[in-house]
Amino acid sequence: MPVLLPAAERLLRSAMRERASGARALQLTPAHGAALLVAFVLGCGIAQAQARSYDPSILATIWKWTPLLARGFAFNLAISFIAMAIGTVAGFFLGFAQISLFPAVKRGAWFTMHFFRNAPWLVLLFYCMFLLPFQVTVFGVTIPIPDWTKATLGLALPVMANVSEIVRGAIQSIPTTQWEAAASLAFNRRQTQWMIIFPQCIKRMLPPWMNLYAILTMSTVLASIVGVNEMMTLTQRALSAENRPGLLLAFYSYVLLWFFVYCYPIARWTVRLEARYAVRQ
């Protein structure tokens, strides 16, 4: 009889995984979608009950705003794609810098990673929003930098820090004997990293990376705080334009449903990949 049950190990393992990827694991199930749907129907009911005689029906109201909200959602997605792309590329370099043989590079990368992981996402968002210029002039050509690009960069920073930890963790999870075997076959360090170690890491990195992406997508609503016209901002605008009591639950559950429909397959796939990897172990 072991002193502690498998539950203890599971908990510790998930805590360590969380620490490694910097993001908690999303656990989305169809039941969540069903619950959101119920909340939405309930919200519609409340709104209908509180409607004044001259108000249009709640569904008509939501339908009216849907194209605008969809445009906002497209913005959320665009921000998430670009932030993820930038954060991933930068994170890769930072991750490899963290295992560099040059102490200065290693320490610098370690500090950078900690700095951006410890800073709240919202503060980083503000940082980029306010400190990046609204336009740059290169060779006499003035290029405007719209707000949403700045927000994207602001979100890419924590993504970078988290990706770098995912990369470092995955590299260090490869047994040192693989490095030794490669060395004894006369591979140099660069070749070993890129041809032997890194390809083995990809499978391990994919689940936490996808989880991070789902978290990032949900975090794009933070951009509403700094005034980017994404879905949450537009929802608030729609609500104030309607100026009707009781619309709140219907609208917010509607927004959440959109996010659920988008994130659910990703979360599901992540869990599947993780399970497959765990079996292979």
Partner: peptide, 10 residues
Amino acid sequence: SMVFQQYNLF
């Protein structure tokens, strides 16, 4: 060239 106890294949 060296061959290891744990094979260490890629």
